[in-house]
């Protein structure tokens, strides 16, 4: 069953005279229990997309069109009161810098209590503590963390605390925005395997926003590749990474050194992101694409289906459903 359906989402930042298209006609859907990785370089609109879905962007400077349907409700238009009910309870977010999202002058436990009371105003201290300690056990934290201050914890422990905090109300969708990026390999490995174990015990749909393809390869089923706010490729991780159909995905995969096997030559993608306030006509990736033709420079390719799920927005995709 589809839990979240993004339809034709556009986010435009308005900065004075400039209009910057940060997310440009993105559509995709995820099923319940999925784990989706959203990858792209910095500035590709990954975080903006997640923030727009939860309406966390300042409406004075942003223009959002399209729809984000969560179980039949459009998150972009629901009543603000309903939205605050959904936030955290149904859809929770873990941000990259948990050190900055926790208050430095309150004990961890107090912060959990505060947030718990937002949705459950009548909860007793004891009840909350029991619930939180259960969560701590899930993410491998000692119960004593409840009485500590954030500065007493290491980066890995803080990130675990943030994950526990996001799971406080058993959310249906968990959005992790670069949640493991700042961590060490070993800690990242620990947390990723804990998350995978967690998913088996509680039903949660996960969206991982990251620039690290290897994190997606080890922990997600599906992947979205974004470039300059546009969807380049979408599909199962094993299909997309093993057999990338979009030149940008191909470039990303080839610029990752691998740890085993033959040392293949590392390639970079020449050039840099286009100016999003004045994007080029045609395919947005054409100026950096090694295969670009006149057709690419003149017309923007629509996402084309390769099979039922696998989609790539490139003129080179042939033999897909459209052509058959």
């Amino acid at each position: 069953m589809k839990i979240l359906e993004i339809q034709d989402l556009c986010v435009t930042y308005i900065a004075g005279e400039k209009r910057i298209k940060a997310v440009d006609h993105v559509s995709f859907a995820i099923d319940e229990g999925d784990s989706l990785g959203i990858v792209g370089e910095s500035g590709s609109g990954k975080s903006t997309m997640a923030m727009a879905m939860l309406r966390l962007l300042d409406p004075r400077y942003t223009e959002i069109t399209g729809a984000a349907n969560y179980r039949g409700e459009n998150l972009l238009t629901v009543d603000p009161r309903r939205l605050s009910e959904l936030r955290w309870k149904d859809i929770a977010v873990v941000f990259q810098k948990s050190m900055n999202s926790l208050s430095p002058v309150h004990r961890i436990g107090e912060q959990f209590e505060d947030i718990y009371r937002v949705h459950e105003p009548k909860a007793s201290k004891k009840e909350i503590r029991e619930r939180v300690e259960k969560l701590f056990a899930m993410v491998n934290l000692a119960p004593r963390v409840y009485n500590l201050y954030p500065h007493e914890l290491s980066g890995g422990m803080l990130q675990r605390t943030s994950i526990a905090l996001s799971l406080l109300f058993h959310p249906k969708i968990l959005i992790m925005d670069e949640a493991t990026t700042a961590l060490d390999v070993v800690t990242q490995g620990q947390i990723l395997s804990e998350i995978k174990k967690l998913e088996k015990s509680i039903a949660v749909t996960r969206m991982m926003i990251t620039h690290d393809l290897s994190v997606v390869a080890t922990s997600c089923q599906k992947i979205i590749v974004l470039y300059a706010g546009q969807l380049m490729e979408f599909g199962y991780v094993r299909d997309v990474l093993a057999n990338p159909r979009h030149p940008y995905t191909e470039g990303l995969v080839r610029s990752f050194p691998s740890l085993h096997g033959k040392k293949e030559e590392l390639l970079s993608i020449p050039g840099s992101l286009p100016d999003l306030s004045n994007p080029p006509q045609g395919c947005i990736f054409a100026p950096r694409c090694p295969y670009a033709t006149d057709q690419c420079r003149a017309h923007r390719p629509e996402p084309r289906h390769i099979d039922d799920l696998h989609v790539a927005a490139c003129w080179r995709v042939k033999g897909g459903i459209q052509d058959a």
């Binding site: 290491s154 422990m157 070993v186 800690t187 290897s214 990474l241 093993a242």
Partner: peptide, 24 residues
Amino acid sequence: QALISNCSSIDPDEDKQAIEIQGE
């Protein structure tokens, strides 16, 4: 051994047995 086994690879088919090390 633990460090290398915990390194994620971009090959989703890779058979990975991460050695878990506890604590910090």
